[in-house]
Design a binder for these strands. Structure first.
Lengths: 351, 351
DNA sequence: CGTTCAACGTATACCGTTCTACATTATCGA
DNA sequence: TCGATAATGTAGAACGGTATACGTTGAACG
C-alpha cells in the first residue's frame, strides 16, 4: 500500500509489476499486437482494470498513435455541422478514437494555424469540413496526416479522400422544382468567394443552378448574386433584391441560414411568401420544418456524410493508400415557402 | 544539406545545432525561462524561424504543459454555444493555448468518457459548459485539472471557478415583462431533469419564475411543465398546452430553440402570436431577431461568458488557487412575440 | 532424436521535450 | 586582488509509452 511517493501515477510499469509480466507484454496487450497468449492477456487486463490504468496519449504519441482525430469546422453555429458531428461520433462510438473539434471561424489563416496545432498534437487523422485553404496547403497537410474532406469537390485527389453530396444535382432539383410550379425569374443567392473554384460546394451549386436554368429554357433569367457569411450583408442584398423594380419570383439561397434571413427581410417588407416571392434554402436543417419558416430545402444528410468520412478516415489510418471519393445523393424537401400560390400543400409537420 | 534520413523532423536538437547552442538553451527560450541573454535569444529565434521549428505537444506533455484546453459542450447545435466559443477563441487569440472541443451529446456517460479522454491527453485546463455530471465526479476532475464551469451555479465551490449569468434575474425579468403587458396565466416550459438541482440553470430559472410570479401576485397561476431536449417532446407538450381548455396567455421557454418550436406549433394551430398566446425564449440567439420569429428573449452574452471563462482558466493554470465566481447580468430584449395586442412595436431589425 | 520454426515473452533503445543541478564566466564591492 | 554574487549556459536524467531485436520454449517433422 504505502508506496514512497504520494499519488503515484499508474503507468504501464505499475501494471506490468502487478501482473508479474514485462512492460513490453503489457504494451502488446494494449495494442492488441501479435504474440500474446490468452492467459497473459487475461492477467494483464485484470491488473489494468484493478489499478484503473489509462494510457497517456502524450506518451503514446511520441512513438505511435494518439488515437485522436481532429475535426476542422469553419463555424459551429451552422446546425448542419452538428449533424455531421453526430455522424462522426456515431462512427467512432465503439472505437478507441476520440474526435476533437477545432473552430476556424471561417478564416483561412486560422484554419492553417489550427491544422498546424493539430499536427503538433500528433493527431492520427483529420476530417476537414469545407476548408477554405489553398490546394497546395491541403496537399501538404494530407501528405503528413491521413485526411478526409467533407464538402470539397476534388474527385481527382490522390492524397486524401472526399465525401460529398452531389451539389450540382441538389441545385438542379431546386430549379426544376421552382420552374415546375411556374417560376421563371429565379435568383441564386450564393456565397462571396475569394475566387471561383470548382472544389467549393457553392461553385458546384452555382453550376447546377446555371445548367438547370438553361435546361428549363430560363437562361435569360439567370442571375447569381453573392454575399459573405454575415447576416448583415445577406439582409442588405435581400432588401435590395426584394425592393428592385423587377423583383425575382424566387430566391434560392446557398444555405438555410441565409434563406431564413431572406425570409425575415421579406416578412419585414410585408411581402407574402410564396405569394410575392418564393424562397428556398439548402441543408434541410431543423429550422426548415418549423411552421413559421416552412422552408423548402435540399436534404443532404449531414449525419451520413460524417459517418462515411469517419469510416474512410479509419481505413486510411489503417493503411489504405488509394483515394476514395464518395458522392451522396440529395433530396428535395418541398415546403410551403416555394409553392406557387394558395394551393400551398405544406409537407407533413414533424411530430 | 543531404542528411542521412529523409524528411528529418525539425526538433529542438536541430535548432540547437543550427544556432550553435545547447538543447537546454533552446528550451529556455521556448519557455521564456530565466537565464537567457538577448543575444542568445535572438540567435535561437532566428534558427527557429529559419527551420520552421514547431514544438511537439506530445513531448511537451510528457514533462510539462500541452498548451491545449478542453472545452466540453453538450451539443453544438445550440447557437448559444457558438457565441461562447467565439468568446473563448477571442480570449485565447494571442496566447499559446489552443482550445479543442469535445461534444457529449447531452449524455452524462459520454461526458465522463470525454473528460477522461481529455485527461489522457494532458489538457492543461478544462472549460465545462453546463455539465450534467454528478458533483462528486466534478470535484474529482477539478482536483486533477484546472477547471472553469459555465452555466453551473455553485458559488461555494472551492475547487473550480464558475461563470454564470444571473438566471434567477433573467426569469424574473421575463415574468415582470409579461405581467407588465397584462398577462397572468404564464406557464414556464422547463427542461426535464433527472433531479431538481440548484446548480442547473434551468432550476435557477424555475426559481426566478416562481418567485416573480409570487411577487406579481400571480402565484395561483404558477405552472411549470418540463420536456426533454428533443423537438418532438417539446412539440407534443406545446400542442397539449395550446389546445387545453384554459390555454395559457403566455409560454416562457427555458431556451430559444424550444420557444421556436412552440411558436411553430402555435402557427400550425392557427393561433396568433402574441394575440392568442405570447411566447418568450432565452439566450437571444440570432434566430430571435428574424421577423418571422420576432421572439422576445433574454440576452446573456455568450461571448462574454466564454471570454471570462477563458481568462479565469488561464489565471488558474498560472497558479491561482482561490476560486472565483462571476455572475453577469442578463438583459431582456422585448420583441413582438410577447406584446399584448396589435400595439406591437417590433424591436429594430438587424442590419 | 536432432532440427526447424512458430509462438510467446523480454530487454531496451528511442521519441522530443522539460527542468534540476551544476559549471563557467562576468560584475563588483571591499 | 580576492572572494561573493549574479548572470548565463550546459549536461543529462526523467516522462510513459512503442516497437525492434532477441531469447526461450515446445511441438511437429523427417
Amino acid at each position: 500500500m504505502a508506496t514512497k511517493k504520494k499519488t503515484e501515477r499508474v503507468t504501464i510499469r505499475t501494471v506490468a509489476e502487478d501482473a508479474g509480466v514485462s512492460v513490453a507484454a503489457v504494451s502488446k496487450v494494449l495494442r492488441s499486437a501479435y504474440g500474446v497468449s490468452d492467459a497473459l492477456r487475461a492477467k494483464v487486463q485484470a491488473s489494468m482494470a484493478k489499478l484503473g490504468y489509462r494510457p497517456l496519449a502524450a506518451a503514446r504519441g511520441m512513438r505511435g498513435q494518439t488515437y485522436t482525430l481532429g475535426v476542422l469546422l469553419s463555424d459551429i453555429s451552422n446546425p448542419f455541422f452538428s449533424d455531421i458531428m453526430a455522424g462522426i461520433n456515431a462512427a467512432l462510438e465503439r472505437t478507441e478514437y476520440q474526435p476533437l473539434i477545432g473552430v476556424s471561424q471561417s478564416a483561412s489563416s486560422i484554419e492553417l494555424e489550427l491544422i498546424d496545432a493539430m499536427q503538433d498534437r500528433q493527431m492520427d487523422g483529420l476530417i476537414l469540413v469545407a476548408p477554405r485553404m489553398k490546394a497546395a496547403d491541403l496537399d501538404t497537410v494530407a501528405t503528413r496526416i491521413p485526411s478526409v474532406l467533407i464538402g470539397h469537390h476534388l474527385p481527382g485527389a490522390t492524397l486524401f479522400d472526399t465525401v460529398n453530396d452531389n451539389d450540382v444535382l441538389g441545385a438542379n432539383l431546386v430549379v426544376k422544382h421552382l420552374a415546375g410550379v411556374g417560376h421563371r425569374n429565379i435568383v441564386f443567392l450564393s456565397l462571396q468567394m475569394p475566387a471561383l473554384d470548382d472544389v467549393l460546394i457553392t461553385t458546384q451549386r452555382e453550376i447546377g443552378y446555371t445548367t438547370a436554368m438553361a435546361e428549363c429554357g430560363l437562361a435569360r433569367y439567370t442571375q447569381i448574386v453573392r454575399a459573405d457569411q454575415t447576416a448583415r450583408e445577406a439582409r442588405t442584398l435581400a432588401r435590395h433584391l426584394l425592393q428592385s423594380r423587377q423583383r425575382p419570383e424566387a430566391i434560392f439561397c446557398w444555405t438555410d441560414f441565409i434563406a431564413l434571413e431572406v425570409l425575415s427581410v421579406a416578412t419585414e417588407l410585408g411581402l407574402s411568401v410564396p405569394g410575392d416571392v418564393a424562397i428556398v434554402g439548402y441543408d434541410n436543417t431543423r429550422y426548415c420544418d418549423m411552421a413559421q419558416n416552412s422552408l423548402t430545402s435540399v436534404d443532404q444528410s449531414g449525419q451520413l456524410l460524417g459517418l462515411q468520412a469517419a469510416r474512410l478516415l479509419i481505413e486510411r489510418i489503417k493503411g489504405r493508400e488509394k483515394a476514395e471519393h464518395l458522392v451522396l445523393t440529395p433530396r428535395l424537401v418541398a415546403r410551403s415557402s416555394s409553392l406557387k400560390v394558395a394551393t400551398s400543400v405544406p409537407g407533413p409537420a414533424a411530430a
